[in-house]
């Protein structure tokens, strides 16, 4: 069964977002997303310092059978990317919510997070997709 940590916010396009203590936001893809992709073989990350708007493409995650765009759930400036994924893309499968994060951004407006789904709503969405 896929995990849906309660402290995170989720996008319908399967990214999660977490507000860090310093007010920055970390983004990755959900357990459900990594599971449906299968073995991740490549991750393309955004460039540091890039400005992104909510729902902008900010990377690509690729398995042998699929490739999906990663969308930034909120607007902001990219301040860090998870370089581990370049050499060890399988980290996304092994640890989607922790070691397998994609990028971190300095949000323009934290309120944008409110339009995202909470864990329950997101889990419902995933369950309905399976049928």
């Amino acid at each position: 069964m896929a995990e849906y940590p309660g402290e995170l916010k989720y996008a319908e396009s399967h990214e999660w977002a977490r507000v860090e203590d310093d007010g920055t936001v970390t983004v990755g893809i959900s357990d459900h997303a990594q599971d449906s992709l299968g073995d991740v073989v490549y991750v393309e990350l955004p460039e540091i310092d890039a400005d992104v708007s909510a729902k902008d493409e900010a990377g690509v995650v690729e398995s042998v059978k699929a490739a999906s765009d990663i969308y930034s759930p909120i607007s902001g400036k990219i301040i860090a990317v998870n370089e581990t994924l370049e050499d060890a893309p399988e980290t996304v499968n092994d640890s989607p919510y922790d070691q397998g994060w994609f990028f971190r951004l300095q949000p323009t407006d934290l309120a944008e997070l409110e339009s995202m789904l909470d864990a329950n709503a997101y889990q419902e969405l995933c369950d309905s997709e399976e049928h």
């Binding site: 490549y42 042998v64 059978k65 490739a67 765009d69």
Partner: peptide
């Protein structure tokens, strides 16, 4: 690297 190709990536 088939994920680059049209049969998987379609319009992209």
């Amino acid at each position: 690297l088939q994920a680059r190709e049209q049969h998987i990536r379609r319009a992209k």
